[in-house]
Structures are given as structure tokens and as C-alpha cells.
Write a protein that binds this DNA or RNA. Structure first.
Lengths: 341, 341
DNA sequence: TATATTTACACAATCGATTGCGTAAATATA
DNA sequence: TATATTTACGCAATCGATTGTGTAAATATA
């Protein structure tokens, strides 16, 4: 029963042309006459021809696909990022494939290999929390496949990188809490292996210092994954300090929301007792009660830029080698009830 | 500087074997001696050989990839579904690629073609809200590529389908509201083109009838996408009725959450004035205040089953043709503050 | 009119892995 | 010892699209 797919050979036979002419006509090669091309295209359409991307990919050693390797798709930030990438890629006839690694290094390595094996045309990735070795991206570089890192980017690997100004964001968020009168501000910090979290923390510390406030490391909690569970645990821990915090700057919204829920359950008022600000502006931030102050993250824009970057540099990389350039996007404070007092 | 990727030809030359022997050794073909196979594998590893999946795919007219075509990845339900699919697929050496169609029919058609062109080994899909024509899945059937529909499945297309018992879920949810004393229960209904929404509505209506309550169609609001925006608008509309509802069964959590937010803003108490129950058990359901009662959806399990189904039937389909079978999973009421009184 | 240039198309090699068929030796069974 | 069977491996075609090289005609330019 299986109908055999139509190939350019079928079209060639039918129209008495060679396959080269068919192939060229289908992609508007200049050496094919306009009428001929039209006729061929019409017939291809009529016969229900669908190009075999595998064959084309094999020949060109490249498929028209952009790979996205990320920790998890179920985070609002990642969803937006992907949408941005897809919008841009689709415009240029590229398909986006996503693969998640659960924030696990081993899995990241394996998935990078999988993408490599698929001969993707470019890869966009945000590192897993603990990744410190970047050898799994070398094969792409060797094959002159554009690699673009976004958000969680490596420091010791030459490639295109798109980030936000985490230092400034951390600084602004903390300064805001200080202006709200907080003097004992806690911080939910992400893995120190990732610059984005170190930078946020540095911004936090500098804001404190600038205001003449003490930087008390017992108020800084190190997180593994910035999950809700960790958020709750961390908050409990913080409240047991001899001097509990009166403000919190969390490196993501998930942990901040969880912390607020814990506080509410304990009868501690937000923002009166503790003012809280998160990071990312997840949808949940505006649904939680009190609504969560946060730092906006231009995830969709980041995705769009990343895709553009991959596409623009497809040829460039082949000729000139990987770009090593950093683009920094701006963030904005979004102030809501959880920190306003 | 592009290092050329290692091929089986390179290994063959180095080891003085033919490429056929290399190819067979790499996949433990019975006709290759154990020591030979070991030696070849060791050398392949040492040389950094990576199979060219495009070449293999071309030859087999199939790539080791499962395609997932869904409306949007940024819904918790979809994220869970995908995780379920990935877990299962990975176990069998398959890669999962996702492609979203924004709940748009045109986009669904186009993306189905894209997946087809990629010569995927199987496709798992949940229909867009308005899809009524399924011709874009025919090519898969013609090529004996397993097609598995999940959740939003077609009624007039022979394929494997995995669904939940929507009628029973709608019935249970409504009955619960009735037991809580509601007598004027409204319903947020999804597109009538999708059986899942029709069935939920049918369950809702039957529960009302069974309790001797009037089924008032002015209390049933038709939604396009069950978005937050629509939810707010619908709630406002319902509250303007001469007899506003005292209960609400929403076909998803997103719209329910939005409705509750609207009610809170208007000073209408949930659940006292209006008891609300949603659908899907999104994470937000337990964060909202009051926490949202809802119907659990076994999305991850559904994904796992779907993947299993695709993988199991890969060979079967080629021999016996498409399966046309429906698997129905059970749901559970999850009762929280928004409906308990 | 003579030379360039452009247009129009075909031949055949190529990308890398797979596999049916064939050969030959080694081992097992009668 | 003779026949079967298994083990071990190579040859060469194949999957479908692409593209460098080449030829010939048509059109343009000098």
C-alpha cells in the first residue's frame, strides 16, 4: 500500500528533463529558464513532490535545522526563548528542534552529540547549571557550525553569546529593596559556576556596600536548581537566623514564589515583614498574591537575536571561523506588591 | 580548518576491512565475529567516529526521530506530555523533536509537512483547536509512519488515539459543585470541534440534569483558545446575567485562574459566592489563592504511552497498516479551596 | 559579421551508511 | 568421510538531491 514518495527522478522522467534541471528549477537557479522553471514547479506541485531533506542534508552535509539545547522547556523563560527562535527561523525556512537536558551535565553532553549527529545547521544553547567543560561543543566548531550561547553562557569558550546585564539587574533589584527600607536583605543565589548568578550576586553585594549595609554571607543561600522545593527550604532556614531578613532578592521567580508561599503560611507578611523581588517575570509573578516584583527578562528577544545570529553566520562561520562576541540586553525592574511598601 | 568527520570508510581503511563489515560490526550484526566487532568498535571510538544519521536515514528512508506536533509548548500540560514522550523515546535511542503550531490550523498543516519532510519515524500530535480536515496526516499513513493522536484527537481519522475520559471528568467536576450546593453552574467550554470539550460539556449537562437542575445555555460560554484574556471577559459577561452563576466549571485552569482573579478584584468571594473548578491541574492551581480545585490530567503518562505506542508499532504498521485503537486514561478530582464550602 | 555573454540543459560523481548476494573457511552433524 | 550449517567478510548497488563540468543554442555587444 505504501505509495512511494515522489522524487525528482519521477518528475524528470515525466517531463523529460534531467534531474539536475529539476533540482535547479525548484530552487530558482539562474541557469534555468523562467518558463521551464514554472512548468517544473507546477508539475512538482501537481505530483505532490516533497523534497527529501535527508538526501539534501547528506549531500550538503547540513540539514536546514537549528538545534536548541536547553535545560527544560517547561519554564516560562525557555518557552519565550524558543518562541523567539522559532519565529525568526521559520522566516528563513529553517526548522527548530529542541532537546532538553534536565539541567544535567551528562545529558547535555549526550544531547549535544545527538544534535551533532543530526547535522544541524546551527545550535543555540543555554548551559546546564553545573556544566564546566565545554568539549562537547567542539565538534560544532570543528565543523564550522555556528554555536550561539544564550543566558547561561560559558566564559572560557569562544562563540557568540547573548546575555543580559546581570550585574546591573542584581544591583537595581537590591537597591530597590534598600529604598523600600530593607536593611537585612537575603539572596537566593544560583550555582556559582554560572556567571549569570555570580553577577547577580555581585550586583546585590555592591548595592549593599554602597548603601553602607553589611554583606552577611549567612543571608546568601546557594541553590542547586532554584526550584520551588529549594525555595521553601531556604526560606525556612533564613527565618531561623538570629536576625531574620527583612528583604529577599531571588535569582528566579520560581524560588521567590515558593518562599512567599512559605512565609504566608507562617503568617509573615509580604512585603511588610519581608519585601521580595524575583527574577524573570514569569506569568505566575502577576498571579501570586501579593503580586511579585521581579526583573523582566527579554527572553523572546534573546531567542530572536540568537536565531538571527545563527542564520546570519551560517556562511560567515564557514569562511571566517566562529565569532566570539557578546551581546548584552537590558532588563527592567517590574515593581509590584511584594516589594512596595 | 574544518576537520573532516570520520566515516566508516576511514575506519575501514585503517583496519583493512570493508565498509560493510564496519557497518555490521557497529550494530552487532550476527555475521560479524565477536573479536572483530570489538576491535572495530574500539577503533571507531578511538577515532571519534560519529554516525551520519542523515546517510542512514536516507538509506532507510527513515530517521531515528519522533516528531511531536502540538499547539504550544508553554502550557504545563504540554510540557508534561513532552517529558513523558522523551523519557520513553530516549530509552530506545530515539530523538524527539517538537514543533508548535500556535493552535493554528494553517500552521499545523505546514508543520506536519515539515516533519514529514524530515522523514521522522513516527508522529505524536494533539490537534489545534479548529482543525477539521486531517489530510495533512495522510502522507504519514501512506508511508506507514505511525501516527498517534493524544488528548485532542480527531474522530474521523483512523489512527492510534490516547485520551482521557472527558465525559466522566466533566460529570464528576459538575457533580462536585452540585454537592457543594451550587445550583446555577456556569461552564467555560472549548471549541465544539474538539470532542474533548464537547464531552466535558456533555458530562456537565448530564450532571445538571441528573440533579434536576436547569441547563441554561446562557451560562455556557464558548471559548476560542481558553486563554486568560477570554476567561476574564467571559466571567465579566456571566456576572451581568440577571441570575449570575454560583458555580463554575472551566475546561482549563488558565481560564479558571483568570476568572477567579477577576472575581477577587470585584469583591466576589470564591468559593462562597462562586465555587470554581478547573481542568488540568497546572502548577498554578496550587499557588493561586484560593487554591484551585481541578481535574488532574495524566499528561506525562499520556506522553509515555504515546511514545511507547509509536515505538512498538514502527514495524507493525509497516506490516499490518495503521492501528485504529483508542486508549482511555482516568482522571481524578483534586479538591481545593476554590470549590470547598 | 565576429566575438562575448547569457541562457538552457544533461552527464555523472558525490555525500555516508546499508544490505542482498556471493564466496570461503570453520565447525557441526550424519 | 561426506554433507549441512554457521561464521566471517567483501562487492557493489542503492537511497535522493546536489553540483562541477561541459555542450549548444540564443542573444547581446563591438
Amino acid at each position: 500500500m505504501a505509495k512511494k514518495p515522489i522524487t525528482i527522478y519521477d518528475i524528470a522522467k515525466k517531463l523529460n528533463y534531467s534531474t539536475s534541471t529539476i533540482s535547479r528549477a525548484l530552487k530558482d537557479h539562474h541557469s534555468i529558464g523562467k518558463k521551464t522553471a514554472e512548468k517544473i514547479k507546477a508539475e512538482a506541485e501537481k505530483m505532490g513532490y516533497r523534497p527529501n531533506t535527508l538526501a539534501a542534508g547528506l549531500r550538503n552535509n547540513r540539514s536546514k535545522t537549528i538545534g536548541v539545547l536547553i535545560s527544560r522547556i517547561n519554564r516560562p523563560f525557555m518557552s519565550s526563548l524558543i518562541s523567539g527562535i522559532e519565529d525568526q527561523a521559520k522566516k528563513q525556512g529553517y526548522t527548530v528542534i529542541m532537546i532538553q537536558c534536565d539541567d544535567d551535565y551528562e545529558s547535555e553532553v549526550q544531547n549535544a552529540n545527538t544534535l551533532y549527529d543530526l547535522r544541524i545547521a546551527g545550535i543555540i544553547t543555554s548551559l546546564a547549571m553545573q556544566t564546566e567543560d565545554y568539549a562537547h561543543f567542539k565538534p560544532f566548531v570543528d565543523q564550522q557550525i555556528p554555536v550561539v550561547f544564550v543566558d547561561r553562557v560559558p566564559e572560557s569558550f569562544a562563540a557568540y553569546k547573548i546575555v543580559i546585564d546581570n550585574y546591573s539587574a542584581g544591583y537595581k533589584a537590591t537597591k530597590h529593596l534598600i529604598e523600600m527600607g530593607c536593611t537585612r536583605i537575603a539572596h537566593f543565589a544560583g550555582s556559582q559556576k554560572r556567571a549569570i548568578y555570580r553577577d547577580r550576586q555581585k550586583g546585590y553585594e555592591d548595592a549593599l556596600k554602597e548603601a553602607g549595609l553589611e554583606v552577611d554571607c549567612s543571608r546568601v543561600v546557594q541553590f542547586d536548581t532554584l526550584s520551588a522545593q529549594e525555595g521553601k527550604k531556604a526560606m525556612r532556614q533564613l527565618m531561623q537566623l538570629p536576625e531574620p531578613p527583612d528583604g529577599l532578592f531571588s535569582s528566579n521567580d520560581t524560588a521567590a514564589v515558593s518562599a512567599i508561599q512559605y512565609l504566608k503560611k507562617k503568617g509573615i507578611h509580604v512585603p511588610k515583614d519581608i519585601a521580595v523581588i524575583g527574577f524573570n517575570n514569569d506569568p505566575i509573578a502577576s498571579i501570586l498574591e501579593p503580586q511579585l516584583s521581579t526583573v523582566s527578562h527579554p527572553a523572546a528577544k534573546m531567542g530572536k537575536l540568537a536565531a538571527q545570529c545563527v542564520l546570519d553566520n551560517m556562511d560567515f562561520v564557514a569562511k571566517e571561523g566562529q565569532l566570539n562576541q557578546v551581546t548584552t540586553l537590558e532588563t527592567e525592574l517590574i515593581l509590584r506588591a511584594s516589594s512596595l511598601r
